[in-house]
Structure formats: structure tokens, C-alpha cells
Simulated assay, not measured.
Amino acid sequence: MGQVRTSDGIQLHHEEAGAGRPLVVLHGWTSSGRFLDRSARPGRARPRRHGERELFLAEMAECPPSARVAVMSDHTRADWRDLLPAIDLPTLVCVARQDAVFDWRGPAWVGEHVPGARTDFFEDSGHALLLDETERFDDVVTAFLREHPGPADDA
């Protein structure tokens, strides 16, 4: 697993896998990327594992309450809206309509303000839409990747 340090000193870990155009998938800040391991891999079925939701929630609960409070406080104070129109990359915004953590209109607004963004609504999903609508999530991400092939994919 590779690492990079941001300009403000935060250590980020990344994993490279496969070939073709890079895909950046951001998971929740209180969990690891292990729940994304099986996502968006064209041609590979990703059946839902028994107890997966419980494992996901248990992993989130391991984040110390002080860290959760600090990150949420920062998250709710930062205003990045003016930067959205400057994003010049293919962007997929997945909106969970039944999210009890954040109002679905927030991510929908993001999708409206990133130039050329594709916004997909998950009508039956809560905050963990990749677990709530696993097959649909995989289909949406796979279709997005096919819509935006990279140079290595064109060869």
C-alpha cells in the first residue's frame, strides 16, 4: 500500500490495482476501504456477504468519539462550494435518498454544480449505499467507468 502526505501533514494511504485509467473512490472517514475492495470490477460478481453491514458498522464504531466529533465539526464548517465549478475531471455523485446522516439534497447539489458530473440517485439506500444497493452501486460505477475510458482502455 502506497502513502502520500498532504500539504497540511495528513498521511493518506492508497492502493493501486488493475490497469487503465485511475479511479479514485473515497470511503467514509470512520472506515477503511476494505468494503470497496469488491466494487466496480467489471465482469466480477460481488455478492453481499453475510454480516457485511454489521462488520461495516462495527468498524465505524472503532473510531474514537473525539475523532468523530473533530472531523464532523470541521466537515460542517468547511465550505467548498466555490471550488466545485473548477473540477475538471469525470465525476460521479451517488446520492442516497434515505440517508439519515446527511440530507440527500446536499450531494445532489454537488452533482448539479460540478461541470459534467453524472448524478445517480439510490432511492432505497441509507448512508451506506454500496451495502444497501450493492448490485445497483456496482452497475452505476461500472457504467461510469465505461463512459470515461482512459488512454490505456482505448488501446
Rank of each mutant, 00 (worst) to 15 (best):
R34D: 10
I87T: 04
L145Y: 14
R44S: 05
D99G: 00
M1Y: 07
A61W: 08
E15S: 10
D139M: 05
H148Y: 15
F56E: 14
E16C: 02
S31M: 11
V4G: 01
T6Q: 00
F137L: 08
R53D: 07
G20R: 11
G51Y: 04
F121I: 10
R21F: 05
A128F: 11
D132A: 15
V140K: 08
E16P: 00
E112C: 00
E123Q: 08
F56C: 14
R136T: 14
V95Y: 03
T142V: 15
A78K: 01
R136A: 15
R77E: 08
W29A: 09
R21V: 04
S73C: 02
H148A: 11
E52T: 00
T30A: 03
D8E: 07
M1V: 11
M72Q: 06
A58Q: 14
H113Q: 02
A152W: 12
E112I: 01
A117T: 13
A58G: 14
D88N: 14
V114I: 14
S125M: 12
R38M: 01
V110N: 03
T142P: 08
R81K: 09
L55A: 05
W104R: 08
R49S: 11
A143S: 12
H127N: 09
E15H: 11
D153I: 13
A19G: 07
L130T: 06
G33K: 08
V141Y: 15
Q3T: 06
T30I: 00
G106I: 06
D88M: 10
R44L: 12
A117H: 13
A17I: 07
P65H: 05
V4W: 11
A70M: 02
L55R: 09
V25F: 00
G33P: 07
R68M: 11
L129Y: 06
D79A: 04
L84H: 06
V110Y: 02
E135H: 10
L36E: 03
W109D: 05
W109L: 03
A152P: 08
G2Q: 11
F121N: 04
E62A: 12
H75K: 09
V101S: 00
R97Y: 07
A143L: 11
A100E: 01
V114Q: 02
D154E: 14
R46T: 03
D154K: 14
V140Y: 05
H127Q: 12
E52K: 04
S32L: 02
D88E: 13
F121C: 12
D74V: 00
S125Q: 07
T119I: 02
A61D: 12
E133W: 15
R34T: 11
A67P: 00
L57P: 01
L145E: 14
H13Y: 12
V24N: 12
L89Y: 13
F121V: 08
E62I: 03
S125A: 15
T30S: 06
F56Y: 15
H75I: 07
G18D: 09
S32T: 07
P151D: 15
M60A: 13
D132T: 14
